[in-house]
């Protein structure tokens, strides 16, 4: 009896492994191997072709932390991530709240608000490239119309970062909006009826009902947006190419520059490892909180 069940178990697990095999192979080739190679390269001195020359331990890392260009790029990345995530979240939340109202024709707004989700990074960046253009762009037209001094969005050190943040927020909005809208619409209506009966203020509804009920979703959207922001590349490449003077040289773009323009693959790998660790950290926090919160909310 025991033997039979044992046998069955073994068969079942064999089948399980067999079914997992294709995804293991694909993940191995496209994820695990490059990842391990990156870890390996980050400890190597490399030649111009990217071939390892000799093991130098953590030298690449220590070089990074004393390098001005890396520290600038790291700081700028943090500023960028903070503002783009914050703005995305606040705007998407406000949009989701207004779009969850039951008014005639609100579906049109819902579609409009979520439409940026279908636009690829490249297309969006080119769109904004035109809008930021000092001659024909919409923004310069508006500034002229308002009799304000012209701003050269893409070549001004401060404004260029603002421009990148703006573009990124615009691109992230659709996704964040849609997820938050779903969460807001899932709040039971009777909670708001309770608030109606006692005339609870707008702020009280928001603080006591809407935000607590959507807080797991807010957290999820925050982490996803954050991780996305750390990986920003396309906008930078198309709009500013990291310039002016490295003022929009976000981490991933710096990695790309180091690896494929400056041919210092070791340094680029070390930066990749740092980025990986940061993202892994956020992912772990996300999983940890989700499991804890999930248990809490399942009770409800």
């Amino acid at each position: 009896m025991k033997k039979a069940s044992n046998l069955k178990f073994r068969n079942e697990s064999a089948l399980g492994w067999l079914l997992l095999l294709p995804s293991f192979i694909i993940l191995g080739i496209f994820v695990f191997y490059p990842m391990l190679k990156t870890f390996f390269l980050s400890t190597q001195l490399t030649d111009l072709m990217g071939n390892p020359i000799k093991f130098i331990g953590f030298k690449n890392f220590s070089n990074l932390f004393t390098s001005d260009s890396f520290m600038t790029s790291f700081t700028i990345t943090l500023i960028f991530v903070f503002f783009s995530t914050l703005l995305t979240l606040v705007m998407a939340y406000l949009m989701a709240m207004s779009a969850s109202q039951k008014i005639m024709g609100i579906a049109v707004f819902r579609t409009m608000f979520s439409s940026t989700m279908g636009v690829s990074v490249t297309v969006a960046s080119i769109l904004w490239l035109f809008m930021f253009n000092p001659q024909i762009g919409m923004f310069s037209k508006i500034l002229t119309f308002l009799h304000l001094p012209q701003i050269n969005f893409l070549s001004d050190p401060t404004w260029s970062l603002v421009a990148i943040i703006g573009t990124t927020v615009w691109m992230n909005l659709g996704f964040a909006f849609l997820i938050l809208l779903g969460a807001i619409q899932a709040i039971p209506q009777d909670l708001y009826q309770v608030a109606d009966l006692d005339g609870a203020s707008w702020l009280m509804r928001l603080r006591k009902i809407t935000i607590p009920a959507t807080s797991p979703t807010i957290f999820f959207v925050t982490v996803v947006t954050l991780i996305n922001a750390f990986q920003t590349f396309g906008q930078v490449d198309i709009l500013t190419s990291g310039g002016p003077d490295y003022h929009t040289n976000l981490l991933v773009y710096a990695i790309y520059q180091d690896a494929f323009v400056n041919h210092s693959v070791g340094r680029a790998s070390a930066q990749s490892v740092i980025l990986t660790i940061i993202i892994m950290l956020f992912t772990m926090i996300q999983f940890y909180v989700k499991n804890r919160k999930g248990a809490n909310y399942a009770n409800e």
Binding site: P188, D190, Q193, V194, P212, A213, E300
Partner: peptide
């Protein structure tokens, strides 16, 4: 209310 309508938080 039928479903109690209590704020879980």
């Amino acid at each position: 209310f039928q479903n109690y309508a209590l704020m879980p938080n």
